[in-house]
Amino acid sequence: MTTAISVSGLVKTFGRTRALDGLDLTVRTGEVHGFLGPNGSGKSTTIRVLLGLLRADAGETRLLGGDPWADATSLHRRLAYVPGDVSLWPNLSGGEVIDLLGRLRGGLDTRRRADLLERFDLDPTKKGRTYSKGNRQKVALVAALASNVELLILDEPTSGLDPLMEAVFQDCVTEERERGRTVLLSSHILAEVESLCDRVSIIRLGRTVETGTLSELRHLTRTSIAAELAAAPNGIADHPGVHDLKVDGSQVRFDVDTKELDSVLKRLTSVGVRSLTSQPPTLEELFLRHYEADMAAENGRHGGARSDQNNTGVAK
């Protein structure tokens, strides 16, 4: 399997801010790749580097086999981009923008354009200034999806869409994958990522913290277990990987690291299980753990600064 995008050790600084701090990202040809991260974690900056709009300070970046900075125009024939914040020319109609972007990209499938306009319920005759955020987003989506390209780079493309249009968007992306196109999808809508993406990369503070298929990622996190046992449990509390244990007579509730799931279940069945429910971790929980880690790191940094002061005080 070939790779459409490969990024390693990418660094980009703006003045003193280190927006990207050694980011890695691999998108295989033909997959839909979810690109997740809190606000300001560097998703859009990465995409701008991939589009050759920003110049990387360090790191290796390959896009469709070329260098995104040096080969920008030839690579751009083969990709379509939907920005997170779509801004249209006030005097141009949506239809004009779709055609213009399509032509600049090197061609537009007019049948697909008509089909998409209908599915997204978009009026192409309205002027740019009169569109709502969701409709501006639709203009950019139709322009991108109606182009004949190998790679779609979508930066939070559904941020202004209603649930109905969100469903249309998901259908469209599924169709794109069936045609063999590669999609890099930056998103905050986890249900969308869960249903569309083959693999996911989660970034934080300009670095990749997790990458892999959803099942691989789930493996790294915890499953919630609620069980009624034949007798009072023993040894569960000390079992490795068990967290937040609550025992009420023969009822137990706890979270367990997925890699310890098997041995914990063996321990439970040795006592005797009357009923058991287990909940696999959702992407949301996975994601929240990283968000919370982010906030904890932030707090820790403040706390650390304080204790440093204390330390220096003691040293004196």
Binding site: L53, P83, D85, L88, W89, L104
Partner: peptide
Amino acid sequence: TALRVEPILATRIGR
């Protein structure tokens, strides 16, 4: 600054 140039530069049109 209005971010209208990015979609253009993401096509085969060079800077």
